[in-house]
């Protein structure tokens, strides 16, 4: 959806580069297992797709002659360090196994949960949020939200399915969107363009 917006409108107005770069980092740290484990063709294809789209978006926003001029750097002020440092620290302390790949994987889980924050802050500052941006954020929130249903199903049907780090992070991630979803639903019902209160 986001690539569609950027390519079709030749603009990344209202999109946080910080959030996009955090997602690229999340996928790098999480999908290192592409090199040493195979789950299914679907799983591999999706991992490669996420990496490719994340890097493509960052490339457009940073280097495309037209698109980069529509990036509002002054408004996108969230500091990386405030998200990366606590997640890194937490991953070092709270993990299933203290190995490099496992700690990086855990870090990616924590970081993904909060990676939307720069985007949410930027949207609060944006007067006219375009529909594609609003829909993109809604879909991103719904994506992890729907996992919760899948986790409940798997917990009930699979014997050794215990993933508390993933569950807590996923629920926290979804909760961060609660406020956004509330206003998204209100505006959708009223058939109005999304506006977030300051």
């Amino acid at each position: 959806v986001l690539l569609l917006k950027i390519r079709a409108t030749r603009s990344c107005r209202g999109i946080s580069l910080k959030t996009q770069e955090l997602y690229a980092l999340v996928f790098i740290c999480r999908y290192l297992d592409l090199f040493y484990s195979y789950i299914s063709l679907y799983n591999t294809v999706m991992k490669v797709t996420y990496l490719a789209t994340a890097f493509s978006i960052v490339r457009y926003m940073r280097f495309d002659k037209v698109v980069r001029q529509t990036y509002d750097k002054e408004q996108d002020t969230f500091r990386y360090i405030f998200l990366i440092a606590p997640c890194a620290l937490l991953a070092l302390v709270l993990n299933h196994r203290f190995s490099p790949t496992e700690v990086l994987w855990t870090f990616s889980i924590y970081l993904e949960a909060v990676a939307i924050l720069p985007q949410l802050v930027l949207m609060q500052r944006t007067q006219n949020i375009d529909n594609l941006t609003a829909n993109y954020v809604a879909l991103l929130g719904a994506y992890r939200g729907f996992y919760i249903l899948n986790w409940i199903y798997r917990f009930a049907t699979e014997k050794h399915y215990r993933q508390w780090i993933v569950w807590i992070s996923g629920v926290a991630q979804t909760a961060l969107y609660a406020d956004f979803f509330y206003y998204y639903a209100l505006c959708w019902k009223a058939n109005q363009r999304l506006q977030l209160p300051a």
């Binding site: 999480r30 297992d33 484990s37 789950i39 299914s40 799983n43 999706m46 991992k47 996420y50 299933h96 196994r97 496992e102 994987w105 996992y147 050794h160 399915y161 215990r162 993933q163 780090i165 993933v166």
Partner: peptide
């Protein structure tokens, strides 16, 4: 599949 085994979700 244990908790620290293969992570089969995306």
């Amino acid at each position: 599949q244990g908790p620290a085994g293969s992570h089969d979700e995306l």
